[in-house]
């Protein structure tokens, strides 16, 4: 296993917003981390190399084993050797992630793992990320590229050091749909070519169903369901996941009301007793209030944090989502 996150707990602005996360990612595997805004998914991504701003948050407990070493115990010197080298990040806004006063060429060169003969290597990277157009043009600045091309450049910088793990935090959210599609195809292609492990953080189930091998769904700071893509799509075993899937606009349900989740996500300052999804759940019973459920096996490799797993799977005869 390349990366193992064990019982990660993170405090942010005085509140525990990551409340015990376990997640494994293997070489060549794409793990989708799904959740709505403010559920803690970005914090999980940042924690992997301790990128959380120190004044605001701190990691309370847990282990993050990367190639067997706990990154949380590394010195900042050692972390710098991993960050941007073995573990690379791509964030949502390409334009604010790129430095406007340096050329694309300079920025990619900075990320190279070996500095000799950079031109050939940079040309190779640009070709890999579909930026053949600017090969050999060393004076191109970020603002001269479109949003999609900027994101390609960001991905180029991320893979320049031949990383093992890529953390993508909403990499396509700021892009147009047609460009989004191209970027996702690029990510898939690179994953296969470089045998990359990917953590793909997103709020959009449709995208994750297309790109991920494994999906973890977060709600209020913990994972409430995790499993292989096919199982989550065809056989979701948590009421929240079911609600999310039902919220996807679908042509079969044209002009009909969505079977939407009611209410809104709780604030971390006022989390409910017992199951955190209880107030919005359509399957709730009094027993759910007793204590927060543990993750339980649904089938091999598929877990759900719901005490009514059996009833739900039977109650909901879901139409099969083709991913």
């Amino acid at each position: 296993m390349l990366l193992q996150i064990k019982d990660l707990k993170v405090n942010y602005a005085g509140l525990e917003i990551v409340r015990g996360i376990d997640l494994d990612v293997d070489k060549g595997e794409c793990c989708g981390l799904i959740g709505e805004s403010g559920c803690g998914k970005t914090t999980v991504g940042l924690s992997i190399t301790k990128l959380i701003p120190e004044r605001k948050g701190n990691i309370l407990a847990g282990e993050i084993l990367f190639e067997g070493r706990d990154t949380l115990k590394l010195t900042s010197e050692e972390l710098r050797g991993i960050r941007g080298k073995k573990i690379s990040y791509v964030f949502q806004e390409p334009f604010s992630s790129l430095n406007p006063v340096f050329t694309i060429y300079e920025q990619i060169r900075e990320s190279l793992e070996e500095k000799d003969n950079p031109d050939a290597r940079i040309a190779d990277i640009l070709k890999n990320v579909g930026l053949e157009k600017i090969i050999g043009r060393k004076n191109i600045y970020p603002h001269e590229l479109s949003g999609g091309m900027q994101q390609r450049a960001m991905i180029g910088m991320a893979i320049a050091s031949r990383p093992d793990l890529l953390v993508l935090d909403e990499p396509t959210t700021a892009l147009d749909v047609t460009v989004q599609r191209q970027i996702l195809e690029l990510i898939m292609e690179l994953k296969n070519k470089m045998n990359l492990a990917i953590i793909f953080i997103s709020h959009d189930l449709r995208i994750v169903f297309n790109i991920a091998d494994k999906i973890a769904i977060m709600y209020a700071g913990s994972i409430i369901e995790c499993g292989p893509k096919g199982k989550i799509a065809s056989n979701p075993a948590h009421p929240y996941t079911i609600g999310l899937i039902d919220s996807i606009p679908s042509l079969e349900h044209r002009k009909k009301l969505f079977n939407a989740i009611g209410g809104k996500a709780p604030l971390f300052s006022e989390l409910p007793q017992g199951c955190k999804f209880y107030p919005r759940c359509r399957f709730r019973i009094d027993k759910c209030l007793e204590k927060e459920p543990e993750l339980e096996n649904v089938s091999h490799g598929h877990v759900s944090r719901c005490i009514r797993i059996g009833d739900i799977v039977r109650a909901e005869n879901r139409h099969n989502l083709q991913a």
């Binding site: 709505e36 189930l205 919220s247 606009p249 009301l257 969505f258």
Partner: peptide
């Protein structure tokens, strides 16, 4: 967010 989107569309 997607779940809120469904509520508003409804």
């Amino acid at each position: 967010d997607i779940s809120v989107q469904a509520q508003i569309l409804n």
